[in-house]
Write a protein that binds this DNA or RNA. Structure first.
Length: 782
DNA sequence: AATCCACTTGTTTTT
DNA sequence: CAAGTGGATT
């Protein structure tokens, strides 16, 4: 038998070994769910299933990466790479690109992110001459998203009595028309939003039996993680794919379902047995993560929810300390209390800062902790907020990439038609838009042939338009030839984006330059690794299709660093920390005021709190503030109802929740007066950091600016042009080489002729890799 | 066409 | 408080 199986407990082992039919694994918090999934995949392969016949769907890219690397450790990297593992969105976008013709898209379709999609909705509302105070774009977007996740087309939506009546009552009867126009515009732009990735996968599998059969055949075994957070659309994809063989295993915990706002349906997990009557259920109830006290406290809380699957989560770890509850006078003081406690505990217990996490309900709360931690020189890292790929300067360059790859991309077009400023203003864009709408064409086709569409513009403007068009066309010509990095550099320089970035020497401007540099650095790394490993797909579209579904969590460059983690509870799901602070436990904040109107809403908030508590291994502290700065003014607040729902025996209440007396010592009391807030200089987060560091950029150059310094000079020199690595050392099996990225390695095998010599190299720390010698950057050592 | 300023507005969580 | 809008100014 496979030796690693003895690392599992009885119920874990049963879950791993059962694979004759559908199974449902109810995995309590901290019960070794990932371990079970990993071993189950390894076990399936030991039974002879090929990696590419296994489909494993996770909730985040990060989770997929982690599982992949664990499997790589067991089975080797070559094997783990062939698994179909990723989020629903990333796996099915890959499949949709491959099968795009069946749906009337090209394989280069753009994926609109939330803000692209909102902008489009805004435009449509404006074009339909509706009032955007009645038809709030964000709200409409939510309605459309929910509808798509229920697999409603605009037609079906408009025929649904409930929807229509609701919209009439809410005085937004045109919603279904907006939905219709929105979908039409996406299609015309050769673009899909996040929900379309799932929706269209369903359409593909529904309408093309041969395609369905192909994938059913391929995915011999399907595993789904975090099943409680799947929506109907996702659920149906799984059902369709598993329909032929029923070899499907879903893992989840109904007590941790926290994504209903995104259409997640807790019913999916509750109904799994109904869908597959022969399904076998396994329960993982032993929590290995937390102390008994924390597990029991969390249990006492979640008991207040009505609907849930029966289970008994328990811990055999130490009993542990009680959960601390402390009230603060203000949000400011809450920050002080928490940062003091962190500093004190780190000193006393000699733990690393990376063992601490501050968890909050809303991203806006991060600021106050940022300030108090900075004041004490405690290093921290904030996750979430606006992600790298959402920064303006990054979106701008990416819009260029997008337009070159898919000229019909309307949002990209609008974003860059006049950026950097080239004298094509709103009026002109308005005219193009109108002509496009009139002829049902894309903005790009109007631009390409202004005469045909009778564009009423003057000669000067026409010339500017032609200039823009020719520039994009010149990029287009090279798109399939140049490697991603070279293409990206070309676009960045020639479009004037680089020049524009150089002009601005303000701190903000410097930060923008750095971000651009970072993006280009990422593209460079992508290109290199693809070329070195002899992959074909090293073009810009390949890069874009890979990053367009990444979030900030996925670019965790210094996750290892010695820093306190600050994040929302949502993004903390699946993580664990020795010491956890759950902050802002106040009515209207947590539970959120948005959730209070419905019982279901409060129950979801309670599950969210349950998730927060169960992140902690040893120590947990809960805080609330009596007053908080919100919407520009100080508002008073009451302790959260959830605090009273935890069994008293698990708590150590340092500040009577109702009494107003302070038991926090003098120094803190002083700091609780709001006057301090005003006298505190409020640095914007980056301006301070900026002043400390020296800019890697040089002064703007007078001639044609060359973008990046540091990374890029090195980069351009380092990577030889294709086929020109003449100076490289020749190698034979047994030789030892030092590789720029993978470190030391031994040559195992060399194959191929002079122009495409490939070496199999066994690296000390990076596993075994196939390298194309003409691209690889290495030195022969022995 | 671009910039600037005064005003309103709103706020949960994210693939 | 912040972002976003609309209007006025150059």
């Amino acid at each position: 038998m496979v030796e690693y199986l003895n690392q599992l407990n009885e119920s874990q082992l049963q879950a791993v070994e059962f694979n004759q039919g559908p199974s449902l694994i109810i995995a309590g918090a901290g019960s070794g769910k990932t371990r079970v999934l990993t071993y189950k995949i390894a076990y399936l392969m030991s039974l002879g299933l090929a990696p590419h016949n296994i489909l494993a769907l996770t909730f985040t890219n990060k989770a997929a990466r982690e599982m992949k690397s664990r499997i790589a450790a067991l089975e080797g990297e070559a094997t783990s790479r062939r698994l179909w593992m990723g989020t629903f969105h990333s796996v099915f976008s890959r499949i949709l690109r491959r099968e795009s013709e069946f749906l009337g898209y090209t394989s280069d379709f753009t994926i609109y992110d939330t803000s692209d999609s909102r902008n489009l909705i805004k435009t449509i509302i404006k074009e339909m001459a509706l009032d955007d105070k009645t038809y709030k774009p964000a709200k409409i977007q939510g309605v459309i998203s929910m509808a798509k996740n229920q697999l409603f087309t605009p037609e079906r939506y408009s025929q649904d009595k409930e929807n229509i009546e609701h919209d009439i009552r809410a005085k937004v009867p045109m919603t279904s028309e907006i939905f219709k126009a929105y979908n039409a515009r996406l299609k015309a732009s050769n673009a899909m939003d996040f929900d379309d990735l799932l929706f269209n996968t369903n359409v593909l599998l529904r309408d093309h039996p041969d395609v369905l059969a192909r994938y059913q055949q391929q995915f011999q075994y399907i595993l789904v993680d975090e099943y409680q957070d799947t929506n109907f659309s996702q659920h149906l994809i799984v059902q369709r794919l598993a329909d032929a063989h029923h070899r499907v295993c879903v893992v989840g915990d109904d007590a941790q379902s926290i994504y209903s706002f995104r259409g997640a349906n807790i019913e999916n997990i509750l109904n799994f047995q109904k869908n597959y009557p022969e399904a076998k259920t396994f329960k993982l109830e032993r929590n290995y993560r937390s102390t008994q006290n924390i597990v029991n406290a969390a249990n006492s809380l979640i008991k207040k929810n009505t609907e849930q699957l029966e289970k008994n989560v328990f811990s055999k770890n130490e009993v542990g300390d009680k959960i601390l509850i402390t009230g603060a006078f203000s949000d400011f003081e809450e920050g002080m209390i928490v940062s003091n406690k962190v500093a004190e505990m780190r000193r006393a217990k000699k733990t690393s800062y990376s063992d601490f996490a501050i968890l909050y309900r809303t991203n806006a709360q991060s600021r106050i902790f940022e300030e108090s931690f900075r004041k004490k020189n405690i290093p921290y890292r904030i996750y979430g907020g606006l992600s790298f790929y959402q920064r303006k300067e990054i979106k701008d360059v990416i819009a260029y990439f997008r337009l070159v790859i898919n000229p019909n991309d309307e949002e990209a077009f609008k974003r860059i038609i006049n950026f950097p400023a080239r004298g094509i203003g709103d009026t002109t864009v308005g005219k193009i838009s109108e002509a496009a709408k009139l002829h049902n064409a894309s903005l790009w086709s109007v631009l390409s042939d202004p005469l045909r569409y009778n564009l009423n513009i003057n000669a000067g403007t026409a010339k500017k338009l032609t200039g823009f068009r020719e520039m994009i066309e010149s990029f287009l010509e090279q798109l399939r030839q140049l490697p991603a990095y070279d293409m990206a550099m070309l676009i960045t320089k020639q479009s004037g984006v680089a020049h524009d970035a150089y002009q601005d020497t303000s701190p903000e401007g410097m930060s923008r330059q750095e971000n651009l540099e970072e993006l280009l650095g990422a593209i460079h790394e992508f290109t290199d690794s693809r070329m070195e490993e002899g992959e074909e797909n090293y073009l810009l579209p390949d890069f874009l299709s890979e990053v367009s579904l990444l979030t900030d969590q996925d670019t965790d460059k210094d996750a290892e660093a010695e820093k306190v983690t600050m994040m929302t509870i949502h993004s903390a799901k699946g993580l664990e920390f020795k010491n956890v602070f759950v902050v802002g436990l106040e009515e209207e904040l947590f539970p959120s005021s948005m959730a209070l109107s419905e019982v279901k809403g409060v129950e979801e908030e309670r599950r969210l709190f349950y998730v927060a508590l169960t992140r902690a291994e040893d120590f947990c502290m809960l805080t609330y503030a009596r007053s908080r700065f919100r919407n520009g003014q100080t508002e008073s607040s009451n302790p959260s109802r959830f605090l009273k729902e935890i069994g008293e025996e698990f708590l150590d209440v340092q500040d009577g929740m109702l009494s107003r007396s302070f038991s926090l010592g003098n120094e803190r009391r002083e700091s609780s007066f709001a006057g301090l807030r005003a006298s505190e200089p409020r640095w914007s987060s980056f301006s301070e950091e900026r002043n400390k560091r020296e800019s890697p950029f040089q002064k703007p150059q007078t001639v044609q600016p060359v973008l990046p310094r540091s990374n890029f000079v090195k980069a351009e020199n380092a990577r030889p042009k294709a086929g020109s690595n003449d100076g490289a050392d020749d190698v034979k099996p047994g030789d030892v080489i030092a590789h720029e990225r993978f470190g030391m390695g031994t040559i195992v095998e060399v194959s191929g002729d002079a122009n495409s010599r490939k070496a199999t190299v066994e690296f000390e720390n990076a596993g075994t890799k196939q390298l194309l010698l003409k691209f690889a950057k290495y030195k022969k050592v022995k």
